[in-house]
Design a protein around this nucleic acid. Structure first.
Lengths: 84, 84
DNA sequence: GGAAATTTGTTCGTATGTATA
DNA sequence: TTATACATACGAACAAATTTC
């Protein structure tokens, strides 16, 4: 779950995998916000673009939803996330 | 004006020619922004680098001007584009 | 209500690595 | 070796929506 700067796996995919794992294990609960892009930049020590690339992967997988001005939320199974 | 993946003409030059044509025929008007690099990537189904190579050609010809964070603009004959 | 800070969205600038012809 | 093309990654600037004070 640590990030391997070398190796064939792109950083943004590794970060996506880490976040997906946290969603799966409940670290980031359904309908709850995950850390801001800025916070993720700081944690993984990567640029915002790279964080956003990771989040894009997760959004395409339907795991998260981002809302301008609010944050990025884990999609609860029951749909309708981030409407609170 | 379609893109020929084979043939001797590089893709980026073909794309540059298409955009130049659109500027000439008024599809992209003077002092107006042309589609973003991302939009052009999608339209021509090429990488951003290839789009940027095409835009570089047009910029060298003085047809367009790119501004970070804003977009890429057609140079009106009267100069002073993208200052609005 | 308003200003400032926060947060995501969009866009261009630059650099590096890989692959192919 | 050079030119072309794609993927990745970091920087920077600005816009839009929301939250906080």
């Amino acid at each position: 779950m640590s990030i391997d700067l070398l190796g064939p796996e792109p950083i943004y995919r590794q970060i996506a995998a880490v976040i997906a794992q946290r969603i799966e294990d409940g670290t980031y609960g359904p309908r709850r916000a995950i850390p801001s892009e800025a916070a993720l930049c700081a944690e993984f020590d990567v640029s915002r673009n790279t964080v956003r690339a990771a989040l894009r992967v997760l959004a395409e997988q339907g795991l998260i939803v981002s809302v301008m001005g609010r944050g990025t939320f884990v999609k609860g199974d029951g749909q309708a996330a981030a409407n609170e």
